[in-house]
Design a protein around this nucleic acid. Structure first.
Length: 310
DNA sequence: CGTGGCCCCTGATTGC
DNA sequence: TGCAATCAGGGGCCAC
């Protein structure tokens, strides 16, 4: 379950059902699922045996489980289709079961990493020096997420102004702000009435503040609904879907009326994915030519920016 | 260096 | 039916 609210739902499930338990053994059923553990699947499995799992942590879309304190942790990323499921021991293996963690206790459940597309995985890493909560060193470059008290809005705004990129690209750049993916980027931009191709350098401080507020709001709303699920690929540790998909305003709503103005929501190919937006509420940025000696032609009507009507 | 394009995978759906 | 093309919530890597 890819984006922050879905990953947070999983984190809470791990905290409830896995933290405090001791690993008895690990089965790696697909080597690609541990490819970020450079020492290999066997090393990953052996080093987990007998370790006690601490409180579940999260930054953006990354999860980690500290082991016997905070010096080392199991890092998890769900990619596009990863699931962490707490299943009864002996339940039939899922078709795309990649890794199984068995526990020493008699609770009768095990932790399973199931991942159809194998973009996700588990790995073992030391903590970054000086970082809080045993943050694994390999994700030290990931920015705090907007629900983290450590998130620095001033720093974020300064980075946006410095960048020569567009606002949606920036939202998906996990080194600037983490946890935002394609769904919540489109939702926050819709709420902010911002077009995805708006250059970040044009954002004023109030606009950045408003955008951040909408990101936090939509993520908290989604969290309260158990996350966004379009199908059974996106579930919590007990296999249950969230129901925020019914509350989406832009994502996946092509040709449906904008809930604000009634114009049909549009879908545009964008970075090998899609961007959903309201063509009336979210006007494309005006393309400005560099100042030259010849007067620039008037922009074509189709490419014109927002107009003030009065 | 920052930026943008390509690639990694499997499966569901759509169109010919 | 079969087959190809397209699309899907992720990020790493590598040219420019």
């Amino acid at each position: 379950m890819p984006e922050l609210p879905e990953v947070e739902v999983v984190r809470r499930g791990l905290e409830r059902w896995v933290s405090g338990r001791t690993v008895e053994g690990v089965d790696v059923l697909h080597p690609r699922a541990t490819r970020r553990h450079l020492a290999g699947a066997e090393d990953f499995a052996r080093r987990l045996e007998g370790r006690r799992i601490g409180p579940a942590r999260r930054r953006g879309k990354y999860l980690w489980l500290p082991l016997d304190g905070a010096a080392e942790a199991v890092l998890a990323h769900l990619g596009m289709s990863g699931q962490l499921l707490v299943q009864p021991v002996g339940a039939p293996d899922e078709k795309h079961l990649r890794i199984r963690l068995r526990f020493e206790d008699g609770e009768g459940t095990e932790l399973r990493f199931v991942d159809q597309r194998t973009f996700g995985g588990l790995s073992l890493h030391g903590a970054a020096p000086g970082a809080a909560d045993g943050l694994p060193d390999v994700i030290a470059h990931i920015a705090p997420d907007p629900l983290d008290p450590a998130f620095d809005a001033e720093l974020f705004h300064a980075a946006l102004r410095r960048r020569r990129t567009t606002v949606k690209r920036a939202l998906l750049d996990q080194s600037l702000i983490s946890g935002v993916g394609n769904i919540y980027a489109d939702e926050a931009l819709w709420r902010s009435r911002l077009h995805y191709d708006r250059p970040t350098a044009t954002l004023t401080r109030p606009r950045t503040t408003e955008l951040l507020g909408h990101i936090r709001d939509v993520m908290n709303d989604a969290l309260a609904a158990g996350g966004t699920s379009f199908d059974s690929l996106y579930v919590n540790v007990n296999g249950e879907s969230g129901y925020f998909s019914r509350s989406l305003d832009a994502y996946g709503r092509e040709d449906e009326p904008c809930r604000r103005c009634g114009a049909p929501i549009r879908r545009r190919p964008w970075m090998n994915r899609s961007s959903y937006f309201c063509p009336r509420c979210q006007r494309p940025p005006v393309i400005r030519r560099a100042a030259g000696r010849s007067a620039p032609a008037r922009p074509a009507p189709a490419a014109s920016g927002p107009r003030r009507s009065g």
